[in-house]
Amino acid sequence: MRTHDTGYARTRARWRALGLCFALILPGAARAAGWSADLGVTYDNNVTLAENASDILSDTFVSTSIAKSFSQALGERSRLVYRPFVLAQAYDKYDGLSFVAAGMNLTYQYRPSGAVLAPTWSAFAKTWVEEYKSKFRDSNRYSVGASVRRVLTDRLTFAAVVSANGRDSDGVVWDTHDRSLLLNLDYELARRALLYATLDYRDGDIVSTAVPTLKIVDAANAIQTDDVFGGNRLAYRLTGHTLVGKLGLNFRLNETDSLDLSAWYAHADADGGIRYDRTIVSVAYLTRF
């Protein structure tokens, strides 16, 4: 059983390691770009990712993040982009879901030509640390993958991303791995308005919290207590796939600020015939400085 003291000590160790990494890398980076930050409010109608109505719980959270990019030219057509970031979410009802995170995203970008319609190919590695109020969800996370982004017309931009994602947590259920294929389309509605649509297919581990039933117990790869939701609910790691559709509208307020409205719908199918649906609505204020 982890004590608070040990937990805090480990948390401090992680942050120190992360800070050391940044300190080692960033002085070597070249040109610094600006800061970006956001502040948003999100409603999630199924934070338990549960199937049965009695287990489905909703919540609202406030999120904020800040990031700064550093770019290193590697030649005429390629560069490295370092992007350290800090993120926090605070939940209204289920405080254990609240967390702070910090990490680094490294992207290698290659563009075969300077033509407007030329695609941008990227390979990225992202790693970050999450510290939750829940004692089981604290995680080291990583994501590696590749993407392509291409302007299709003067209004339409397409992007595709494939990635492999992993999570190493203090709770066995949240030790997850999955693979993702994401397709995104940006459409410039007007000079200040951008409509975007995203389709994300994920194959791998799914975490759900529910009162135990034979159906979910039989299907689960791992089971453990969940210190967030109570009510005899347990957390389960299942194998399955999730399809996420997202529709968003980004409204530019001025050269540096914008307002972003988005709605997500996720449908998951897990082993054992377990399904869940989830809808997320978010509004966020984004800025660069």
Partner: peptide, 16 residues
């Protein structure tokens, strides 16, 4: 960096 975070700070697995 990746190795330091993922290996050096590996997580304990608890079930509660």
């Amino acid at each position: 960096l990746v190795l330091a975070l993922l290996a050096g700070c590996s997580r304990s697995d608890e079930t509660g």
